[in-house]
Amino acid sequence: MTLQTDTLVRPTVTLQSKADLLKLYSDMLLIRRFEEKSGQLYGMGLIAGFCHLYIGQEAVVVGIQSRQNPQDTVITSYRDHGHMLACGMDAGGIMAELTGRIGGFSKGKGGSMHMFSREKNFFGGHGIVGAQVSLGTGMAFAHKYKKDGGVCITYMGDGAANQGQVAESYNMASLWKLPALYVIENNRYSMGTAVARHTSNGDFYRRGEPYNIPGEKVNGMDVFEVQAAADRAFAHIHGGHGPYILQMETYRYRGHSMSDPAKYRTKEEVDTFRNTNDPILLLTDFLVKNKTATEAELEQIQDQVKEIVKVAADFSQTSPEPDPSELYTDVLIEA
């Protein structure tokens, strides 16, 4: 039932076109630069409240997103900026939501943790740890009910994996053979508590075993391994066999949120990941060594990404705050 990563053959990435490979690079770099800019704006007081950065985990969402179908839906927790960018949501709209402006995806009413785009099939952005898992299971239920061929991809962290409703969701998803992909982003810390201190068994991918859900542990720092695992998961789900669990071994470089100095781990630990296992460096290395792209081509992408983030940051500061009349709108839909 379970697959071990060490038994897997490294996927044949040459099957992807140069454009596809450069898009992986561009998407991951956009998340990295966007989040760095978010951190800066937070430091300047332009972003407030809770703000959870995705830096270090980029390969996970970009790898999965590159293998899913247009009708698939995505839902995640509050560490959601990367997922929104990967879904194709406009960087300016996301950044303007972070600054609480009318141009934000939720008109400034949701903030960092609560953003949605029906158009891009992104359903949040949820602030309650684990809540997105039963919501995503319901979205999978709807895909099956409507027979639209869609899969719901539900992301959660290692901390959320211990919530009771995750087990409840696994049970129902397997019982009803729902088209659900559960992606556990194990960034090794549930806020400040290391996995070994919050979880009796860190093999989150095996949590589906009692419910007959197959799972895999994947090197989530390598976008190609993420893609290959996603392909196996989607093949299983599209075959009508029900849900699948992917445990992505990843790492977040920044604190849990902007207010977390991350004193529960050493600088050496963070540096080790940054220097030897960084998802963007790994991909860059591959692209250069295989002569997929020249330094100049990569620099061109870097410039494009820089420009997108600059435009987004400008928009997030020039878009006005919501009109006071917005206070009372969107509470209920007119029946």
Partner: peptide, 23 residues
């Protein structure tokens, strides 16, 4: 007409997710 397990938190959330997609 769907019988659920005894799992109120889970099936309430499942219902909400299904409603998000228009059911």
């Amino acid at each position: 007409v769907v019988d659920t397990p005894i799992t109120e938190h889970g099936f309430a959330g499942l219902g909400v997710g299904a409603a998000f997609l228009g059911l």
